[in-house]
Amino acid sequence: MSSFLGLYNYWIVIFLMMAGFYNVIARGNLIRKLVGLNIFQTSVFLLYISMGKVEGGTAPILAEGVTTYSNPLPHVLILTAIVVGIATTAVGLALVVRIRAAYGTIEEDEIQRREEGP
């Protein structure tokens, strides 16, 4: 039972990761792929933050009468990763918008056909 509780977060993280991955590889719509990447990305954030948690600890902000703090290092890495993530997602979306303008579609197979066509 304790093993189930202790690893539950990681299992859900892997489930989310695979749900995102499925959206990326099995769907042809480019926006859908980016949504999948976003889910994948959030699952990685959850993985890091879950690892940083310390039993009985609190947020890593100095307070009187507190001796146990959670690990601040994963927080720093993920905090910046979130903002970098949105910036790169925006680049992805901009590329999708340009692909739509150039090909008239954002479905992968139709773009492929257009490329191979006469």
């Binding site: 954030f45 933050i49 879950s50 959670s70 927080h75 993920i78 905090l79 979130i82 903002v83």
Partner: peptide, 10 residues
Amino acid sequence: LDAVDVAFTE
């Protein structure tokens, strides 16, 4: 999970 700064950003 005590990551208040991260929660804020997310």
